[in-house]
Simulated assay, not measured.
Amino acid sequence: MMILTDKKPRVNVEAILTTQEIHDIEHQIAHYPDPRAACLDALKIVQKRNGWVDDAQVAAIGQMLGISAADVEGVATFYNRIYRRPVGRNVILLCDSIACFLMGAETLAEAFQKHLGIQYGQTTADGRFTLLPICCLGNCDKGPTLMINEDTHGLVGVNDIAALLEQYV
């Protein structure tokens, strides 16, 4: 017979996260009256190393913050810039809001997919680019807009794609 308890499974945080990640997360925790408030910061810290956050890292973050892995997962999946699976070295976020759609975002998306040889949610074979839609980049007056890593590019046309991508190794 299995006995159910309310104890959370323990993970070896030191075996999952780097010493620097642990230090940086602890530093963020110190800024909040409740450690749980550092969840998004912790996810960003961990994602910085590999570009995404795996299940073991989610569990380790939860343990450090005193919350369940499911709660950390809820935060991770709410924010569209926290990646739960591997992505390319450069992540292209194409805005698909109504403003960008009206300015040709659909045509731009098709051109990116053709140029890169991938569909939304996929990564190029060389691991250089991942292509994702995003609901709004807040750059509506310069649509269609996209973001590559942390760089926002507005008024992007189909003929701009090759030169734009050459800026990202």
Rank of each mutant, 00 (worst) to 15 (best):
A60M: 04
I29D: 07
S97R: 15
E26T: 04
A42S: 14
S68N: 08
P86Q: 14
D6E: 14
F78S: 03
T107P: 00
G62N: 09
I82W: 11
K8H: 03
R84E: 02
P33T: 15
T5H: 05
I98P: 00
T107V: 11
K8Y: 11
D96Q: 15
P86E: 14
V53W: 10
G74D: 11
T18K: 07
Q47I: 06
W52A: 00
I98C: 11
P33L: 15
C100S: 10
G88Q: 09
R89N: 10
L17D: 04
D6V: 05
N12V: 11
V13K: 08
L94N: 03
A15F: 02
Q28M: 12
V46N: 07
Y32W: 11
S68H: 07
F78P: 01
P86R: 12
L102F: 08
K7M: 03
D41Q: 10
K48N: 13
F101Y: 15
A99T: 14
L93C: 00
D6M: 08
I92P: 02
T19F: 02
V11Q: 02
A69P: 04
R85L: 04
A76I: 07
I82P: 02
S97F: 11
I16N: 04
Q28L: 06
H31N: 11
H23I: 02
N80S: 10
A42Y: 08
Q63D: 06
C95Y: 14
G51T: 13
R10H: 04
A30E: 15
N90L: 08
L65E: 04
P86T: 13
M64D: 05
D96A: 07
G88T: 14
D6P: 01
Q63R: 01
D55Y: 10
A42G: 07
A42N: 08
A15L: 09
I92M: 08
G51E: 13
Q47E: 13
P33G: 07
Q57C: 00
L65G: 03
G104Y: 12
M103F: 11
I45P: 06
A69D: 10
I25H: 10
T107F: 07
A109S: 13
P35I: 14
V13M: 04
D34S: 06
A38N: 06
G62I: 05
N80V: 06
L65S: 02
G88V: 14
G51P: 07
T107I: 11
C100P: 03
I92H: 09
P86I: 13
I61V: 14
R81K: 09
F78K: 02
Y32G: 05
F78A: 01
K7I: 09
W52C: 00
I98V: 12
F101R: 15
Y32R: 09
Q63H: 00
K44L: 09
K48V: 01
R10D: 10
K8E: 13
N90K: 08
L94C: 02
H31S: 08
I61T: 06
H27E: 15
P35C: 05
L102Y: 12
Q63Y: 06
T5D: 08
K7P: 00
P9Q: 12
A59F: 05
V72A: 07
Q57L: 00
P86C: 10
N50V: 00
E26M: 10
Q63T: 08
V75D: 01
Q57N: 01
E21G: 03
K8R: 12
A56K: 09
V87H: 04
G74L: 04
A76Y: 06
L94R: 12
R81P: 01
G104L: 11
K8I: 12
A59M: 08
N90V: 11
I29G: 00
I29T: 05
I98Y: 07
I92D: 07
